[in-house]
């Protein structure tokens, strides 16, 4: 059933996969400095920044919008706990705990991602 041209498609696909894997792993490797900061972003704007290393007791964050998301942060990890959006991909993503991990609620334009902590400061006074 396969034809000659398929080889060409397969080749391109393999190259794309290889390049993207290498690219992402380089990017992740560079960011991973052992510290973890979770960013909650809505509509392209950062709405909350949580130092995951410093979370002692679970923090619950509600994000309103077209839909509602409930986010739970614990020591070293964070996740979408509940959402009333139709696809629930964000909740299914489960816990994020590594630098570069990410969960997206597309219907609500909300995203959580984990970044290496900026080494610039130790803590923020408020």
């Amino acid at each position: 059933m396969l034809k000659k041209g398929d080889l060409f498609i397969v080749l391109i696909v393999i190259i794309m996969i290889a390049v993207s894997f290498v690219g992402v792993s380089i990017f992740r490797g560079r960011e991973d400095d052992g510290h973890k900061t979770a960013l909650i972003i809505r509509d392209g704007k950062e709405i909350r920044r949580i130092d995951l290393d410093a979370v002692d007791e679970p923090i619950e964050i509600t994000v309103d919008g077209d839909y509602n998301n409930t986010i739970i942060a614990e020591k070293g990890r964070i996740r979408f706990m509940e959402a009333d959006c139709p696809d629930k991909v964000c909740v299914d993503t489960g816990w994020l705990y590594k630098t570069g991990d990410m969960a997206v609620c597309l219907p609500n334009k909300v995203m959580i991602k984990i970044e290496g902590k900026s080494q610039d400061i130790d803590i923020v006074t408020y």
């Binding site: 398929d6 498609i9 794309m16 997206v104």
Partner: peptide, 30 residues
């Protein structure tokens, strides 16, 4: 005669995912 249905379908599935990713990147602005 050059591409089989399977080959075309693989290319289609991949471009489908890339298209979605572009839109996601656009809307999340990230």
């Amino acid at each position: 005669d050059k591409f089989s249905i399977i080959g075309i379908s693989i290319a289609g599935a991949i471009s489908h995912n890339i298209g979605q990713l572009l839109v996601a990147a656009f809307f999340m602005q990230d």
